[in-house]
Simulated assay, not measured.
Amino acid sequence: MQDIIQKMQSLGFNQYEAKAYLALVRLGSASAYQVSKDSGIPRARIYEILNGLSKQGLVLKEEINEAAQYSPLPVDVFLESMQSNWRTNFESISESLKELEKTELTPDNRVATLKGADHILSFCRTLLKKAEQKAVISFWGDMYEELLADLQATSEKCGLKGIVFEIEQPLQGLDHHRITSYTENIGHQKWFILSIDGKEMIYGPSISERETAFYTDDPVHIYLLENYIWHDILVNRLVKKQNDEVEKWIATEREQFFSM
């Protein structure tokens, strides 16, 4: 019950309003005293709460033998009303926000921090939808699977390029990174990069390990990280044409470069 109360609060009801409506749904029709007793709302507040809900049209009030009886707006009607209000508010807010948002590029290119796995994934989906010419990615399996449907949609309208790890048969335009001792033992350091049209980019560590990422429209960041992806693709393609000795040599050189 607490779960549905919290969900109703997210729709704009306070706790007492949610409890009162739910009590009436259970009781069907009841006096203020019965609603107070069933819901746990103090008797000193129950008339105020029920009258407020009545003014909103969510509770029906009848005078029967000089006593007030309350009944809930039928659940189907209540849900339709909530959905209609949400849709109206969403469309209004969307229009207002888009009018406020600056569409022109600002001279101060920025790097912003994003928090939360859902927000990061939503940002990635938004960028993929915005892509007009190309999307360049470097993804490990978890991010690739989360965004597969969005990547497919992007590949159908513009170029999709990049490299993926832990995916045997990636979408057209993407290279599969060879399996090495380095990739097998990389642990939590599975960073992702998503760049669109050379204008916007989001990058960060695996969202399953750390729900933080970075957004930038800074051309220097974008140039460096897109070149990082190309370097990874180039080395991957060259090694595939060579033999195991090249792989061992690369592993040794990497270890020496990053050692203290």
Rank of each mutant, 00 (worst) to 15 (best):
F13L: 05
Q15V: 00
Q15T: 02
E17S: 08
A18Q: 02
K19A: 14
K19W: 09
K19P: 02
Y21S: 04
Y21M: 07
A23W: 00
A23C: 05
A23P: 03
L24I: 07
V25Q: 03
L27P: 05
L27H: 00
G28T: 08
G28R: 10
G28L: 12
S29R: 12
S29D: 12
S31F: 09
Q34N: 10
S39M: 02
G40W: 04
I41D: 05
P42E: 01
R45H: 13
I46C: 01
I46D: 00
I46E: 04
Y47C: 10
E48D: 12
L50Y: 02
L50Q: 07
L50A: 07
N51V: 08
N51P: 09
G52C: 10
L53S: 00
S54H: 15
K55H: 13
K55Q: 13
Q56C: 02
L60F: 09
E62G: 04
E63I: 13
N65Y: 13
E66R: 15
A68F: 11
A68I: 13
Q69S: 10
Y70F: 15
Y70C: 04
L73M: 15
L73A: 06
P74Q: 10
P74K: 06
V75Q: 14
D76V: 07
V77G: 07
F78R: 02
L79K: 08
M82R: 00
Q83F: 13
N85Y: 09
W86V: 03
R87D: 15
T88A: 14
T88C: 11
E91V: 13
E95D: 08
E95P: 00
L97Q: 11
L97K: 10
L97F: 10
L100Q: 11
L100Y: 14
L100H: 12
E101N: 09
E101Q: 12
K102G: 09
E104T: 08
E104D: 12
T106H: 10
T106N: 09
D108Q: 12
A112D: 11
L114D: 05
K115C: 06
G116N: 08
D118V: 00
H119P: 01
F123A: 09
C124R: 03
C124A: 12
R125G: 08
L128I: 00
L128A: 06
K130V: 05
E132H: 06
Q133E: 15
K134H: 12
K134Y: 12
V136P: 00
V136K: 03
I137S: 09
